[in-house]
């Protein structure tokens, strides 16, 4: 459970930075990932921001150990919906995952193994 704790700390720090940077003087620019399908996520934005890692972790163990492959919280489903239309990826400078994680200084190793690319011919699952 270190990871979520670290994320929480980083988010708090990020929130502090944003407030301090309200006048436009923050040293680190706030990321602005393009949301390809706004308002269509599997849960409300506030909950996703706070808890997406818990959802992914829970689903991960269910999938790997029990073969439960419901699409709603699957990493593949996240990527398919959130990958940039320009690059097809959730990574990169303005990537949906990488831009925020770089800003919050929370390194993730999901994509050392998992594909960050949108898959062709796959309809993303809506809530």
């Amino acid at each position: 459970m270190r990871f979520p704790a670290a994320v929480a700390v980083a988010l708090l720090a990020a929130a502090g930075l944003v407030r301090a940077g309200d006048g436009g003087t923050g040293r680190v620019p706030v990321p602005s990932p393009k949301i390809e399908a706004p308002g269509q996520c599997v849960a409300p934005t506030a909950e996703m921001r706070r808890n997406h890692m818990k959802m992914l972790l829970h689903q991960r163990d269910l999938t790997v150990h029990e073969g439960i492959r419901t699409p709603r919280f699957s990493l593949k489903n996240c990527v398919n919906c959130h990958a940039s239309h320009a690059t097809g990826s959730v990574l990169g400078k303005d990537g949906f995952c990488s831009s925020c994680h770089a800003y919050a200084a929370v390194s993730i190793d999901c994509f050392e193994c998992h594909s960050p690319m949108r898959q062709a011919n796959v309809a993303a699952v809506k809530p």
């Binding site: 593949k76 990527v79 050392e112 594909s115 898959q119």
Partner: peptide
């Protein structure tokens, strides 16, 4: 070694 271009259904990565 490091791996890129994995299949979406088959995650694979260095060191395991």
């Amino acid at each position: 070694e490091e791996i890129t271009g994995q299949k979406a259904d088959v995650p694979r990565g260095k060191g395991v």
